[in-house]
Amino acid sequence: MSTARPLEITAATRTSRAVKTAGVIFGMGVGGLIDGILFHQLLQWHHLICFSCHPGATIDDVRRNIFADGLFGVVALGLTVAGVIKLWSALRAGGAELPGRMLPGAAAMGWGLFNLVEGVIDHHLLQIHHVRPGPGQLGWDLAFLASGVLLMLVGRRLMREAPASAAAPARA
Rank of each mutant, 00 (worst) to 15 (best):
V81F: 03
A146R: 00
G56Y: 02
M102G: 13
G105S: 12
A106V: 08
G27S: 10
I85P: 00
W45I: 02
F51C: 06
V131M: 12
K20L: 13
E161I: 07
L77Y: 04
G78Q: 03
G136R: 09
L151G: 07
H54N: 08
S16D: 10
G73M: 13
G155C: 02
D141P: 08
I49C: 01
I121C: 06
E97D: 13
L113F: 00
C53E: 04
L91Y: 05
G56L: 04
K20A: 15
A96T: 08
R5L: 15
M102R: 14
F114P: 00
A82K: 01
L158G: 09
W140D: 11
R160W: 01
A4F: 10
G27T: 07
M28D: 02
G136Q: 09
A143Q: 08
E161G: 10
A168F: 15
R132S: 08
E8R: 08
V74D: 02
P6I: 10
V75R: 05
D141F: 09
G139N: 14
A18S: 13
A108C: 11
A108K: 00
L87Y: 10
A68G: 05
M152A: 05
R156K: 13
H47Y: 07
I128Y: 06
I85M: 12
R171Y: 15
D61V: 12
S165H: 14
G83A: 05
M1H: 12
L153T: 02
